[in-house]
């Protein structure tokens, strides 16, 4: 067992003990091990180095590595907790933990705020929202006139930017999503409840003596 664990650690930099990761997240030990099966497949899709780079992340989302996307890049940057340009296994588990159906709502709100605060200023600014709208239009091949985009921004900031200073702060965001709960839908992945069923092979690669449920 000891040999197996050290081999895993050598091949997968940042690999943390599944029992320890489970104790810090909403996942069980079995679920962490099932996530490791998914992680192995993503992290070996382009370069088999035990780490997920941006190209591998995009490939996992779009099944097409050539597709550059502002939002997938932004999620990658937030998953890259240690800011090393790659996602290691502990980053992967801790970040996905926010998307667990049982994760605290405050964590989901906080993550979504950071997601849209493209320039990490602590505010979601109008120009950032415009940039995201334009990126969405490019991605979806939908066309909207610039006047219409401005009208959408006016409406959004009228509703969200309560103190009308041209930017949305965290407390305004908390208030806004409480009135528009559908905005947090993307922050919950029901798949995470069934991860052991989706990746049953974790049982054969388990590092722990007894699988906790």
């Amino acid at each position: 067992m000891g040999c197996f664990s050290s081999k895993v650690k050598r091949q997968f930099p940042g690999h943390e003990d599944p029992v320890s990761l489970a104790s810090q997240t909403a996942f069980t030990v079995s679920e962490v091990e099932a996530l490791f099966e998914l992680y192995k497949s993503i992290s070996s899709s382009v370069i088999d180095d035990g780490l997920i780079n941006k190209e591998e992340f995009q490939l996992a989302i779009f099944k097409n590595r050539k597709k550059e996307n502002l939002f997938a890049n932004r999620i990658f940057d937030l998953f890259d907790v240690k800011k090393k340009g790659v996602i290691d296994f502990s980053d992967f588990v801790r970040s996905l933990n926010v998307f667990h159906p049982n994760a605290p709502q405050e964590d989901k709100i906080d993550f979504s705020f950071k997601l849209y605060d493209l320039e990490n200023t602590g505010f979601i600014e109008r120009r950032e929202v415009k940039q995201m709208l334009i990126a969405l239009l490019c991605e979806s091949e939908m066309k909207l006139a610039d006047d219409t985009i401005e009208l959408i921004l006016d409406k959004t900031f009228r509703e969200a930017d309560v103190n009308q200073d041209g930017k949305i702060d965290l407390s305004e965001w908390i208030n806004f999503v409480s009135k528009n709960p559908s905005l947090l839908k993307i922050m919950t992945l029901p798949y995470l409840r069934d991860i052991t069923t989706t990746f049953p092979s974790f049982v054969f690669n388990s590092e722990v003596d007894e699988i906790a449920t």
């Binding site: 996905l96 969200a160 559908s182 993307i186």
Partner: peptide
């Protein structure tokens, strides 16, 4: 035509924000 959606409702439809695809084999 009145604008009914807010910007974030539109943005959240991006495929790049759909992490469900990570689990689809």
């Amino acid at each position: 035509e009145p604008v009914t959606m807010n910007a974030f409702e539109l943005i959240s439809t991006s495929q790049g924000l759909n992490l469900n695809s990570l689990f689809e084999k």
